[in-house]
């Protein structure tokens, strides 16, 4: 049983999230502003926080700053603010994920699960040779397996090769041509969109929301990359 704190000034949203998450058998704590959230975290052993930004008394950003002072519990910001600057600010002061309202409940549940796994793996996670880890993705080149948040993902050999290429060089942008050359060892046909299709398939398998990928990102007009962990 994991303890999850949901913090939003809108009680209906808190209730809805509670309903969705209780299905997954989590223990839910509620808070309706930042101050309450900080108090709950000080009192209870919380494994994950879902927090709104715009709240009375103490907003989500201030609350998170306070939390981060003594605790590295995963925090997912859930907010109506969709600007890039808001996202960057939230992630920079220590949020682990960022969900924009209105959200898909399923996506929230998936992200909560993903964050919890990573949080728990963080302690017992050991780096094995011939394996690459980025976020919740782990690629083991010996067993030729890929796990996403601890769950095995079945990829085709080509998809596996592409993912391996990208994950072995995080943050490096590979153009479709380069990927083609690396995988097939031959020059590509210009108008071929094979790589793009494979990338989409991989994304569908490893991303919670393929439309807004966390790991396998497209740099439009350049190519693709795996976004590495922030140092």
């Amino acid at each position: 049983m994991y303890n999850i704190l949901i913090c939003d000034d809108d009680r209906d949203i808190v209730n809805a999230l509670k309903i969705y998450l209780s299905d997954s058998s989590y223990n839910i704590y509620e808070a309706y502003n930042g101050a309450e959230a900080v108090a709950v975290i000080g009192r209870e052993d919380i494994h994950l926080v879902l927090m709104d930004i715009m709240m009375p008394e103490m907003d989500g950003i201030s609350a998170m700053v306070k939390i981060r002072e003594h605790c590295n519990v995963p925090v997912i910001l859930i907010t109506a603010k969709s600007e890039d600057s808001d996202k960057v600010l939230g992630l920079n002061i220590g949020a682990d994920d960022y969900i924009i309202k209105p959200f898909q409940p399923v996506e929230v549940v998936a992200r909560v699960r993903s964050q919890l796994r990573r949080y728990l793996q963080l302690g017992g996670g050991k780096v094995r040779p011939q394996s690459f880890t980025v976020g919740g993705i782990e690629l083991d080149d010996i067993s030729k397996t890929v796990t996403c948040d601890g769950q095995a993902v079945s990829l085709t050999p080509t998809e596996y090769e592409i993912l391996k290429l990208l994950i072995s060089n995080p943050n490096r942008v590979y153009s479709p041509k380069e990927i083609y050359r690396e995988i097939w060892r031959e020059n590509p046909v210009t108008t071929d969109n094979t790589i793009a299709v494979h990338i989409r398939h991989i994304r569908e398998k490893i991303e919670i929301n393929p439309a807004e990928p966390r790991y396998l990102k497209a740099v439009w007009g350049h190519g693709y990359m795996i976004q590495g962990d922030k140092k």
Binding site: T191, I195, A196, V197, R200, G221
Partner: peptide
């Protein structure tokens, strides 16, 4: 809107768009 212009390969863009929308 903040626009950051960088050199892009239009052909790659076309391929990517085709791949994304194939399905």
């Amino acid at each position: 809107l903040e626009i950051v212009l960088t050199p892009c390969d239009a052909g790659v863009l076309l391929t990517q768009a085709a791949g994304e929308f194939e399905q």
